[in-house]
Every structure is written in C-alpha cells, then in structure tokens.
C-alpha cells in the first residue's frame, strides 16, 4: 500500500497504515484563526509544513504532531512513527545534519526517557536530519521497550521505504 502526498511517498509494509497531512508552521496563530479540521484550506502554502503519522494500529482522527492521542492506544507489539518537517530555515543547521536518505534508528537510541509523552512500558527515539534540503524530526515509539529487537527493524523498514521529494 503506497501512501503519497506533500512531497513524501512511502511504500507501507504489511500491518502499517498512515497519513501525510500538514500542520501550521505557527501553531499558535493558526489555532486562533481556524478550527482544527480546516487548517489546509485556511492557511497559505508557505504557512503549512508536512507531517506524516504512521502506525501498526488504527490511528485516531485527533492526534498531536508527536502522536499524543495515538500512542495511548498502542498495544505492546505496535509501533508509531512521526516524520515532522520543520521550516526551510532549519535545513542544514547543526541539529538537522544533511543526509542522503532518512537515517536508520539504532536499538540503543530507544528509551523511555526519549518519549514526548511518557507511557508505561513504551520506548521512544528522536533524531533530526535534513534530506533534500528539507528538515525533519523522526520520532518513533515502540509499544514495549522490551521488544526493541523486534520492533526497531519495523521502524527502519518504513524509513527505508520513504522517499523525500527534494525542495
């Protein structure tokens, strides 16, 4: 199943589903101006930045950029992955090092302390990069920290299957 939109394309492996939407570059200003379901229609292109949410479970309609509202629903065998794009001013900066492709995540990069929203038993990983002059934060959550050996490769399979259209 291929998911494509907003300059990203992902061949989703079995079990996975996802969305590629856009978030306001300035969330505070957008919240004051529009409702949560009409962001794309109400804001200009340059005010919007892509965000992909991918998971091995049914993603709920209401989710935060880093999976709040979704990670609460994960089972121990589930995985959540967010690709959050940042503005062009971040591309190539010290935090967002340039890469040819989205990087793979090492098992040692996962830990409970790296979760944006702490859920008992889960493990998270967060890395930043620039691919095709586009700055991304990759944020992954595993349903069970003890299953990192099995679940981290699933995350890496999706990252390897993701194509980033250069800016």
């Amino acid at each position: 199943m291929r998911l494509a939109g907003h300059g990203l394309a992902i061949d989703l492996p079995a079990r996975w589903e996802g969305t590629i939407g856009r978030r306001p570059a300035d969330p505070g200003a957008a919240e004051a101006a529009v409702g949560p379901r009409r962001i794309a229609a109400a804001l200009a292109e340059e005010q919007l930045l892509p965000v992909a949410h991918l998971g091995t479970f049914a993603l709920p309609a209401d989710r935060g950029d880093f999976g709040s509202g979704a990670v609460d629903l994960m089972g121990a065998d589930d995985v959540f992955l967010a690709l959050v794009e940042y503005g062009p001013e971040c591309a190539g900066s010290a935090l967002f090092a340039r890469r040819e492709r989205l990087p793979q995540l090492e098992r040692g990069q996962f830990g409970a302390a790296r979760l944006q929203r702490v859920q008992k038993g889960q493990a998270g990983a967060q890395v930043f990069c620039t691919v095709g002059e586009r700055a991304f934060c990759i944020y992954a959550v595993l349903g069970a920290a003890g299953r990192v050996a099995r679940l981290a490769p699933e995350v890496n399979a999706v990252l390897a299957a993701t194509e980033v259209e250069p800016r």
């Binding site: 998911l3 996802g18 969305t19 856009r22």
Partner: peptide
C-alpha cells in the same frame, strides 16, 4: 481492499483494512 484516499484536511491517508486486527 485497503483504502487509500484524501482526508477532509487534504491529508493523504492509507487505511489498513486487509489484515487489520478488527
């Protein structure tokens, strides 16, 4: 069949229907 489409906020969406646990 799995469902691939566009959501109400112009987001690309792929929903796993085949092989889903529910």
């Amino acid at each position: 069949h799995d469902v691939v489409g566009v959501g109400l906020d112009e987001e690309a969406v792929a929903v796993r229907v085949v092989g889903a646990p529910t």
